[in-house]
Structures are given as structure tokens and as C-alpha cells.
Design a protein around this nucleic acid. Structure first.
Length: 365
RNA sequence: UCCGCCGUGGUGUAAUGGCAGCACGACAGCCUUUGGAGCUGUGAGGUCUAGGUUCGAAUCCUGGCGGCGGAG
């Protein structure tokens, strides 16, 4: 097959490309330039789109003896990922930009261009596995549960999965990938894992948002509506958050307070006890299926609410264009804007963006 | 004016004669390709003030200052 290997400049995508070559495919490496602003050059290997990273990717491609190109997707990245990110925070929601990037850039813009150029598939260093079936590929969790990235790939559709290649998914651990990188003479073998949001140079998400969303002082309320403090911009908060409230005065019960709600219109943040985060139901209209759609409108599944949450057993129901999920036991702190990924065991069924939540805790007197 | 109660880190409290403890908040680290959560750790008060009793005072006594409640 003709494979286009997306190379971020990190260990994983370099080893993935190497395995694609070794498997006998005709591989071309490409690095995505996602930002053209000089100021976003991140040192310390924190991102996936710095000039350093592009150089690392090129060195890896050279080592593998494959052609290498840099494609500029910065405009689409700005429009589809960064602007969406800002708009969501303006609306008091908590977006997941990595999922938008997978949905719109890596497995959309990049994949489309690859297909146009005659490639059969795009290869990435994601930790997830594809299982071939007569109905097309299924997306499953990776063998290394600690590194599993199937959650952020939950946005992929059947068409996208049909042209996708994840060589690392069956590897038992990341340590083996690093060891393999070292054996293959790849200079990125010991490069630190990337984390945080790649387009925020110093990792200061609040500061970055303050410049774009606009930071305006507002009130922090408790559930009775009493003012318990002030904040310097509602964008700095997300449902379930505990730190950074700086209220100074303890709650009456002396227990920690968590953000229960962010109200962008009034620029207020509502706080309360941990119990009040319990969520009995989530729903949304923006959903996709990773492969074939479910056979019936109501079905059992496991639902994962955040990238680092444990999946919980639940019932899903599709009615009138709305997907609703009710967990067997309540979710703990669900932020609208986040993505719920539905699993059947290790298989990803699909995902939706959480638009509404229903509390499991009665509002106190 | 009188009577009563009270004054301890940023906040709320514990210790009623013997090393000033706990919680919340703050900060740091770990974890993590989203935001959070979670875990670990750290700093900060000689106890409103001036005297007194005592080997020893947050604690007992006296005055002052401040707060709360009651009594026309």
C-alpha cells in the first residue's frame, strides 16, 4: 500500500512510520505545520508543531530513507481547531481541541489530500488498534491501557477508519516503543511525551484564553445564589474544577468546593460540594459512529466522559436526533463541551459532544 | 450605662495549666497529547493588648481595646 505517515517529531510517529516501512509499504513522511506564528515555538518538546519538531521529524524520515515533506495546514487548524476552542470557552463550555484536530485536520484535511495524491491510508503513532471485519474496520483500545488513545480517536467515522493505519496499537508498552526507536537509531528515542495543548506555547491556558476571550471580573455564587467571591474571568473555570477559585473563606461545612456551572452571559461561576457534581444523564446532537451504526436505537455500552476517566456502564438511547446516555451510577462532574465516547468492551462505538447534563443531586434547600 | 459571651495562620475552628492541632484556601511536585479530578508535599500563627499569678499561661486574675447578644 501507499502510506502517508504523519510525523509529529515525536517518538511514536517515528516508530509508526518505521514499522510501516518494515511492513513493506511504500511510505512517505509528512509533517503538519499547524502554526505559523513564531511566538508559538515551544521549547522542551512540549508541542507537536514547533520548528524543532519539524526538524526531528525530518531527521527520522532521513534515517528511515523515506521522502519527507512539510505541509502547511495552519489556516485550517486556526479555523477549525483554535477558533472553535475560543468560541466554546466564550460559550462557557469546555472543548477538547485534540479531538477537533483529529476530526478536522489529521483524519480529514490531511487524509483527503493524501487520498487525492493516490495514497491508500494515513499512518499515525496513536495507541489504538483496528480490527478488520466484513463490515469494515473496528476501532479498539490499545494493548497498553496506560497509553491508550482510542478516546481521542472516537470522532473517526467508518470512511476515515477505512483509510487509517495505527502500527503501535498492539505494542504492550511505550517502553518497548522507545527501545525500538533507540535500536533503529532514531534520535527522538528519549524525547519526552508531549502533553498540554499544542498551540498554547507556555502551557498557560488561562492566560492564553484571557487574551482572546477577554477576562472580566465576575461573581462566584453558591447554589443558593449567595455571592461567595469574585473571579477574574469565567473562561478560567470548568465544571468539576476545584483549584483556583481563591475564595479565601471556607464553605460552611469546611469541605472543598467545586465548580458546578459556568454561566457566560452573566459571567458568573456557581460552586458547591462534590456531591452536587453527580450527573445522572448527558445528551447531545453532535454524534458520529466509529464504523457501523448501532443496530437498535437503545443499547448498553460503557461511556467515557473525559480522556482520563474510567469508562462506566450505561444505557444509550437515540431518539429524534438526540443521543442520551444514562450511567448505571452517576458520573462525577461532567463539563458540557467535552466528548463522551461510547465503548462496547474494547471497541469504540462512537461519540458525541455533551451539550446538556442532568444533575443526580437534588438542589438543596 | 449595666449584665453576659467572645477575641488563636488568609478563613473557620481545636487545645480550659504542660510540644498550638485539624479543615478549607494558597503554593509546589506527581499524574496526563483537552479542561478538570486525584495523590504527595510545603510554607505561614508564640494565641487582640498591657500587666499579674505560676517551674510553666491560648488556658487562671486585673485593666484596656474590639466584636456579638441582652437589659428601657
Amino acid at each position: 500500500m501507499r502510506i502517508l505517515a504523519a510525523m509529529s517529531g515525536g517518538v511514536d510517529s517515528a516508530v509508526a512510520a518505521a514499522r510501516a516501512v518494515e511492513a513493506g509499504h511504500d511510505v512517505v513522511g509528512v509533517h503538519l505545520a499547524l502554526s505559523r506564528a513564531g511566538g508559538t515555538l515551544r521549547t522542551g518538546s512540549r508541542g507537536c508543531c514547533t520548528i524543532e519538531d519539524a526538524m526531528d521529524a525530518r531527521r527520522a524520515a532521513d534515517r528511515l530513507g523515506i521522502p519527507f515533506y512539510v505541509w502547511d495546514f495552519s489556516e485550517r487548524f486556526r479555523d477549525d481547531v483554535i477558533e472553535d476552542f475560543v468560541a466554546e470557552y466564550r460559550a462557557g463550555r469546555t472543548p477538547n481541541p485534540c479531538m477537533r484536530c483529529n476530526e478536522k485536520i489529521k483524519f480529514a484535511a490531511l487524509l483527503e489530500r493524501a487520498l487525492e495524491l493516490g495514497f491508500d491510508a494515513v499512518c499515525t503513532g496513536h495507541y489504538a488498534t483496528l480490527v478488520a471485519t466484513p463490515d469494515g474496520p473496528e476501532l479498539h483500545r490499545a494493548s497498553d491501557q496506560a497509553k491508550d488513545q482510542s478516546y481521542v480517536l472516537g470522532v473517526l467515522t467508518a470512511d476515515q477508519l477505512a483509510h487509517t493505519y495505527f502500527p503501535l496499537g498492539a505494542t504492550p508498552s511505550k517502553a518497548l516503543v522507545r527501545a525500538e526507536a533507540a535500536e533503529r537509531g532514531l534520535t527522538v528515542a528519549q524525547k519526552p511525551d508531549s502533553h498540554d495543548i499544542c498551540f498554547i506555547p507556555d502551557g498557560d491556558t488561562r492566560g492564553w484564553l484571557a487574551e482572546r476571550v477577554g477576562a472580566e471580573r465576575g461573581e462566584i455564587l453558591d447554589r443558593s445564589g449567595a455571592v461567595v467571591g469574585t473571579h477574574e474571568g469565567a473562561h478560567a473555570f470548568t465544571v468539576g474544577q476545584r483549584r483556583g477559585l481563591s475564595i479565601g473563606v471556607p464553605a460552611a461545612d469546611g469541605k472543598p468546593r467545586f465548580v458546578l456551572e459556568v454561566r457566560p452571559v452573566s459571567n458568573t461561576v456557581v460552586v458547591g460540594p462534590k456531591d452536587a457534581l453527580a450527573t445522572a444523564e448527558i445528551s447531545g446532537e453532535r454524534f458520529t459512529w466509529a464504523g457501523r451504526a448501532p443496530a437498535s436505537a437503545a443499547f448498553a455500552c460503557d461511556v467515557q466522559i473525559r480522556a482520563h476517566a474510567d469508562p462506566v456502564p450505561a444505557r444509550a438511547e437515540l431518539a429524534g436526533g438526540t443521543l442520551t446516555v444514562r450511567p448505571e451510577s452517576p458520573f462525577d462532574g461532567v463539563a458540557p463541551g467535552q466528548t463522551a465516547v461510547l465503548y462496547d468492551g474494547t471497541r469504540v462505538l462512537g461519540q458525541f459532544t455533551i451539550d446538556r447534563t442532568v444533575s443526580a443531586a437534588p438542589v438543596p434547600a
